[in-house]
Design a protein around this nucleic acid. Structure first.
Length: 374
DNA sequence: AACTCGTGGCG
DNA sequence: TCGCCAAGAGT
């Protein structure tokens, strides 16, 4: 059944109908598309921020199994919330989600509020997510603008300004709202985004099979590959880092990072950046002194790992170190808390991805495991 | 308004 | 291999 957008021209109606039709035939079967409960929509939207949809699915299922509703999330300790987020990155999303759940219990009786204003007042919910929840969970007629929509609309209307510019953002939002068929925001917004991610892709878009090709001004001008116009990303910074596993009485020293730092409130092994003219071994010994005031030596190499975070590309050298001073001299300088952990405790703590790779490596090393209390 | 925050997949 | 990218938000 054709649907009429507010203020819609004929071609806008045709475009919207083509998108809705495509979505009805190609939409993926996703766990948050079962009941569209506001809580499920909320969790999925936070998880999918800056994250590939495929990766979000398993995290979502585990999350819902453990935190089936706002109350269970609000009551959980933060360490457990972060553990379920481990590996997804941008951990402020988890911290804010947790904080927001407690606010929803306090301010809204445990039910997510439908109004945009109330949604925007919750930590972690910004312009995109407020609109996504309002439209997908509560069926309000507001359009969403994410990276998919930016790309799709900037091609459809051949927008030559940088997508992130004020002017382009304004235009994209206006075009999106004009295309939106009233009463169909739930399906239409998902259709826009899914079409953008599966058909109107960043590279090699499927223009020959595209249901919107007839209306696409960028394709008409032959510049679809040059849309959207994005600023060139700054080149990555390469770092060498070193970390040391310290075993004492069969337990491993771990420390909880400061709340406001990168990986805030996650756990890690002491270590840091290898400075100019320094070996990784020397760096581990120095970092132990700087971060814990403990004297360690004899760093024995375990393995090296490549990983990256934000703009950094890291080679992480890992060692087992020996304690020279007394453990009583431990005096944390760069962390909020420490724990001498058994291996099963290590498995329950949330680590940044690089250190989690190290833990997985050691988990498969019988010689190492023999030195550590289970 | 520019910077910062993670991570893994893909061509 | 390596640059690009992802259902953005907070400051």
């Amino acid at each position: 059944m054709p649907s009429m957008p507010p203020n819609g021209t004929a071609s806008e109606t045709l475009i919207a109908d083509a998108l809705l039709d495509w979505f009805s035939r190609h939409k993926r079967d996703l766990p948050w598309r079962m009941t569209y409960s506001p809580y499920h929509v909320w969790i999925s939207e936070i998880m999918l921020q800056q994250t590939q949809m495929e990766r979000g699915v398993e995290y979502f299922k585990r999350w819902i199994a453990r935190f089936p509703d706002v109350d269970s999330l609000a009551q959980a300790p933060q360490d457990e919330v972060l553990k379920l987020w481990e590996g997804l990155g941008y951990y402020s999303r988890a911290r804010n989600l947790h904080k927001a759940a407690r606010m929803v219990v306090e301010l809204h009786g445990g039910t997510l509020p439908p109004s945009m204003e109330a949604l925007l007042a919750l930590p972690g919910i910004g312009p995109y997510t407020a609109r996504a929840i309002a439209s997908i969970a509560f069926r309000q007629d507001v359009c969403v603008v994410d990276a998919n929509v930016e790309r799709l609309v900037s091609r459809l209307y051949n927008i030559g300004q940088p997508v992130k510019s004020r002017q382009a953002q304004k235009e994209i939002g206006e075009y999106g709202q004009r295309l939106l068929p009233s009463g169909h925001a739930r399906e239409f917004n998902q259709a826009l985004m899914e079409f953008g991610s599966l058909v109107c892709t960043p590279r090699n878009p499927s223009c020959p099979q595209c249901a919107l090709a007839h209306w696409c001004r960028a394709r008409e001008a032959g510049v679809q590959e040059e849309r959207p116009v994005v600023a060139k990303a700054p080149s990555p910074v390469y770092l060498t880092m070193a970390t040391g596993i310290l075993i004492h009485d069969g337990h491993i020293l771990t420390q909880k990072r400061l709340a406001e730092d990168v990986w805030g409130n996650l756990w890690e092994f002491p270590g840091g950046v290898v400075e100019e003219g320094e070996t990784p071994q020397e760096a581990v010994i120095r970092e132990y002194m700087e971060e814990t005031r403990l004297i360690v030596n004899h760093p024995e190499p375990i393995a090296s790992f490549k990983h990256s975070f934000t703009r950094f590309r890291v080679t992480l050298h890992a060692f087992v170190v020996t304690l020279l001073s007394s453990p009583e001299e431990l005096d944390l300088q760069a962390a909020q808390e420490h724990r001498w952990a058994s291996w099963s405790e290590i498995m329950k703590l949330a680590f940044p991805a690089g250190h989690r790779k190290l833990v997985r490596h050691l988990d498969n090393d019988p010689k190492f495991r023999a030195k550590v209390h289970t």
